[in-house]
Design a protein around this nucleic acid. Sequence first.
DNA 1: TTGAAAGCGATACCAC
DNA 2: GTGGTATCGCTTTCAA
Lengths: 353, 353
Amino acid sequence: MAVTAQQIAELTGVSRGTVDRALHNRGRVRPEVAARIRQVADELGYRPNPIGQALVKTPRDFRLGVILQSAETPTMQIVCAGVHHAAEELRASGVELILREVTGLDTELVLEAIEELVGLGIQGLAIAPSTESEIRHCIDDLHEHNIPVVTLNSDVPGSKRLCFIGMDNYRGGQTAAGLMCQLLPDGSKVLPLAGHLNNTAHNNRLNGFFDALRQETDYHMTLLPFQPCFDRDDYAYEITQHVLRAEPDLAGIYVASNGQQGVCQAVEEMGRKRLVKVIAFDLNEPNLRLLQQDSLSCVLDQEAFEQGYRAPYLLYEHLMHQKKPVQSLIYTDIAIRTKYNSDLAVPVSNTGH
Amino acid sequence: MAVTAQQIAELTGVSRGTVDRALHNRGRVRPEVAARIRQVADELGYRPNPIGQALVKTPRDFRLGVILQSAETPTMQIVCAGVHHAAEELRASGVELILREVTGLDTELVLEAIEELVGLGIQGLAIAPSTESEIRHCIDDLHEHNIPVVTLNSDVPGSKRLCFIGMDNYRGGQTAAGLMCQLLPDGSKVLPLAGHLNNTAHNNRLNGFFDALRQETDYHMTLLPFQPCFDRDDYAYEITQHVLRAEPDLAGIYVASNGQQGVCQAVEEMGRKRLVKVIAFDLNEPNLRLLQQDSLSCVLDQEAFEQGYRAPYLLYEHLMHQKKPVQSLIYTDIAIRTKYNSDLAVPVSNTGH
DNA sequence: TTGAAAGCGATACCAC
DNA sequence: GTGGTATCGCTTTCAA
């Protein structure tokens, strides 16, 4: 058994209460006594038992909120599953996790959801916003009211959020570039596809891609001018078809946004499946199918389930054990998925929580 | 706040003790009363608070043992780091984790370590054995004595272990085959390298590789006869050099065992770096270097840190909350690592535990 | 400045 | 069969 506060109390000849106040700097303890207590605690390597702490510190109304914007998308549904998993675990420990799924891009709905959750008395908020700017002020506001905020999936840089958990899109782009170089012969032609031009995530994916290609001096890809497809499969289809006609020797397509289904359809219809290597993002239902039918060479996944699962726990640990996240940017693994190592089964933690 | 046993007691007009006995089928409660209690608990969705349970159920001498064989290898050192991380967390919760690192393949030392740990009074054991057969009897013995055993990294099939956590080597082999097909032009020559002929893990990696290649009917790799290098870099070096001379158009090497450093050295010395694609296993210090200098195309990683971290928790959850592992074979992710998505930084959980 | 005591939720033991 | 009570480790009143 690890050393307890009681033992320290006995060794120093004071009461548990005094030990507690001394070790947590709550004041009201004579300095020399406090010093002695700290010294003994140090020597014995005392660490407060988190189980005891949790038991006494869990308030009768421990509520956390989660808001997911664009909740209807396949990837967000995976995030959602992660949230549910956390909710179930936390519920047993006396924490209520309230989830609000917001469909689409309407910022107004998000602000309403925040207000609603605050009204319900949440002590912390995890939020996956589609746009940053309008939400920033709101996050800072919550911070002022001592409601910590964690962003997930998409960040709000510059805000007073506790931390962000999600993908390092720049590195994702680099990884895609590295794969392209490995998959294609030297000097191949590659088409980069983006979504909206002002989407930070997509831009980072593009920049990482371009930068890494430049640095890979042993390979010399010919980059076609990049095309915005606005996350739409029909546009992506048109673009792909058009480019394939104009550039019959096109060897690779890098899809930094959505639209991969349109791309794959066009590639297949022109009989170039497997000859044109397509790399896209996110392992979800539709992409898994595309992988399995060899339409996609591989997919770069951002571990959406883990994002949804861990974000509430980051809040919980912060509120319960004053544990600050290790970094303010927590990047999930960039998982390279092929049809052989892909699986949509729920990853189970089994680590106590 | 979630519903507590106390509330159920009040609603059913009995005491907390009776509720506890009824819900856990400990007997000594009138059937009708028990039924009523269970019904109310059901309606309210009662789940015993694991924090309360943990507090009262943690015995004064909660000790778990971990034994790692071949602990001197780079990958086992990563497993080891995971164990240490779990040990630190568990220590705070009143659990002592005792680690014994066994160098080399000597089974006798492992048996001694087991005996020592049992002598120290461990309530559960996690073990990463290098060989199965001699350990099987011992595991079954521990099981008889109510000491659950979890195998990690390498399994002991047929034993009475609670579960195994580690890599699905067959699937790893398949994944490697899939990558080879993507990386190499149709009809390329590939050399498969194995370690010891009787190493189950390596054999599974080979079988998965062969099977997947056979099924990839759109590609037609020419497989050279596979060579055993006994996990030694010097042998691997010789073999690679020899084959490269005999087969100047060799395009890929699949290293199912250790020896990748020898392989890469030979490839480089013959000026074929980047032209011959080399795929190996395990992301560790030396392999990370080989990735970074483009000697390895990619590595299939088995998440060694997670194995070491989760194995003790599987025991803890089993003993503390009667939680059986979800499956008896818990496969860690098959992570495809290139120089761009590799990192030896410790993955931190932050999920409470 | 300090100690004593209550209480968080669940379990186990001991009376009845 | 059942209820009361002590206990786990810690925090937080409330008295002194």
